[in-house]
Amino acid sequence: MLDKHAKLERNALAFVFAIIFVASIGGIVEIAPLFTIDETVEEVEDMRVYTPLEVAGRNIYIREGCYACHSQMIRTLQDEVERYGPYSLAVESQYDHPMLWGSKRTGPDLARIGEKYSDAWHVAHLINPRDVVPSSVMPSYAWLQRNTLKYEDLGLHLSALRKVGVPYTDEMIENAAQDAYGQTRPDSDGADGFLERYGEDSNVSAFDGDPNRITEMDALVAYLQILGHLTDVAQQTSSPEQQTSNLANGD
C-alpha cells in the first residue's frame, strides 16, 4: 500500500486525477439522486408562483441579507411545529431560486410568517422594530419606505426564472411591470388584470399604506405576506396536532 502511494507521489497528474475521483464520490451519491427520485419533492396541485411584486420583494430580502438571521425552514421537531406551524415540505420551496432556508435564527423563523400580522404591523416593524418589539435587535429598514421600487425590468427577471424552471407564462412575463403596479393598487384596472393572471386569492393591497407610490417597502411586505402560502398542502395534509403526533421530541 505504502509502495503504491510512493509511486503516486511521484506523478503529479495521477495525483490530480486521484483527488478528483476520490472527492467526487460523495457528491455524486448524495446530490445526483435528488434530481431524479420522484419522492424528493411532493407533487401538489395548488402550488402557485411568486407574483412579480413578490419576486421583487424576495430580491430585497436577499439584498439585505435577511437570511443571515431568519430561517425559512421549520424542522420536524415538536417545539418548532408548535411555535411556527406545520413543518416545511420540499415542495414549498420548489420555485425558490435560490432557496432561503437559512442557517441561523438570531430572529425567528419566517417560513409561515405570511398573513400572521397585518401589512401595517410589518411596515411599522420594518421602519423601527423596537416600536413594536421593544427589545428587538433587528436593524431599522426605514429607508425601504423612501426608496421607489425599480419594477420596469421585472419581465426580464420572470423570464430568467422561467429559464431555470419556474412556469411563468408569456402573458405573465409581458405584463410583469404592470402587474407589480396593479398588485399595490386595489380596485384599479391593473389589479383586475393581475388577479386574472395570478388567481383571485392573490393579495392585492397598498402594502405600505400609500397607494400612490410603489416602494421597496411594498415589495418586501408583499413577499413576507405570501411566505408559507404558495400552497396549502402543509396545512391540509396534516394539522399541527397531527404533525406533532408524528414527531418525537429531539429525535
Binding site: G26, G27, E30, I31, L34, F35, T40, V41, N59, A90, V91, E92, S93, Q94, Y95, D96, H97, P98, M99, W101, H157, A160, L161, K163, V164, G165, V166
Partner: peptide
C-alpha cells in the same frame, strides 16, 4: 442579479455540499 439554476431542496443540498 442572477437566479440560481437549482431551487429548493436540491439547491439547499448543493449549497451545503
Amino acid at each position: 442579479k442572477s437566479y440560481s439554476l437549482f431551487s429548493g431542496v436540491q439547491d439547499a443540498m448543493t449549497q451545503w455540499w
